[in-house]
């Protein structure tokens, strides 16, 4: 009897493991193994034909601290995130409120706000490249029409990061708008009517009722925005390649350069570990601090 039961449970255990396997294989192969391998690699030197890779401890991390390019790129990324996240979220919310109301051609407006999202980033970058091109670009032509001088927008270290930020906001806010629109449509209309009867202005209703009730969406959108601000670098390949003088380069693009242009995989791994650590810290902080203020229905 006991033996039979053991055999039976072994069999059912095996079934369980088999069912888990497809998902587990992919998770391990594409998520856990690369993460651990990256972490391990960051403690080794880059091997060459003459000098094989060897354990160097924290040496890679030490050279990272002295790497001026790293600091510049990190600073760029903080500015980039600090501007794109709040502006694209605010724009998304505004657009969602706007297209949630009664207006003529509502579906068309919604679609046109959402279009940048469905375009591949590479295509978006090409469109904007045309806008920014000196002399013949749309921006310069318009400015010249208004009596201003042309400007090499992407060639000037002072304006290039701003240009990249504009492209990102244009691309992202339509995407976030969809989440806000869905959340707005789940709010019962009686809440606004009740507030109206109580004498609340539209602003008071927004501040006291609508915005607090949208907090779960805001948290979700914010986490996505943060991740995207570190993850989305496709446009750099088309627009600037990080230049001039790394003034538009972002962390992930720098990691790509180090790994595949300079072929220093050890240092690229070190940079990756830093990026992963930073992202994890931000996500945890968001959940811990903001979650308390979020009302879930």
């Amino acid at each position: 009897m006991t033996r039979k039961m053991t055999r039976y449970s072994l069999k059912s255990q095996a079934t369980g493991w088999l069912l888990l396997m497809p998902a587990a294989v992919f998770l391990i192969a594409f998520t856990y193994y690369p993460t651990i391998a990256t972490l391990a690699k960051s403690f080794f030197s880059q091997g060459t034909a003459l000098r094989p890779s060897q354990f160097v401890g924290l040496e890679n991390y030490a050279s990272l601290l002295d790497d001026e390019v790293f600091w510049k790129v990190a600073r760029n990324n903080i500015i980039y995130a600090g501007i794109t996240i709040p502006i694209s979220i605010a724009l998304a919310l505004l657009m969602a409120i706007w297209v949630n109301g009664r207006l003529p051609l509502r579906s068309l407006t919604r679609i046109s706000y959402f279009t940048p999202t469905i375009l591949p980033m590479i295509a978006v970058a090409n469109i904007w490249l045309f806008f920014y091109t000196p002399e013949i670009g749309l921006l310069d032509q318009t400015l010249r029409g208004a009596g201003f001088n042309g400007h090499n927008w992407l060639g000037d270290p002072n304006t290039v990061l701003g240009c990249i930020i504009v492209v990102t906001i244009w691309k992202e806010s339509g995407f976030f708008m969809i989440f806000y629109l869905a959340a707005l449509q789940s709010l019962p209309p009686e809440l606004e009517e009740a507030a109206k009867l109580e004498g609340a202005s539209r602003w008071t209703y927004f501040r006291r009722v609508m915005f607090p009730l949208l907090m779960p969406t805001t948290l979700f959108v914010m986490i996505n925005a943060v991740i995207n601000s570190f993850k989305l670098v496709d446009h750099l390949f088309i627009l600037t390649k990080g230049g001039p003088d790394n003034s538009s380069s972002l962390l992930l693009y720098y990691i790509y350069e180090v790994a595949f242009s300079f072929l220093d995989q050890a240092y690229a791994s070190t940079l990756t570990v830093i990026l992963l650590g930073a992202l994890a810290a931000i996500a945890i902080a968001q959940f811990v601090f903001i979650d308390k203020k979020v009302h879930y229905q």
Binding site: E190, L191, E193, A194, K196, L197, E198, P212, L213
Partner: peptide, 20 residues
């Protein structure tokens, strides 16, 4: 006249309480 200026209270079928 706007609803807020009518000095009227209302009880809704769904109560319309602010959940947060």
């Amino acid at each position: 006249v706007a609803p807020s200026k009518r000095r009227i209270s209302m009880v809704f079928q769904s109560y319309a309480l602010f959940p947060h």
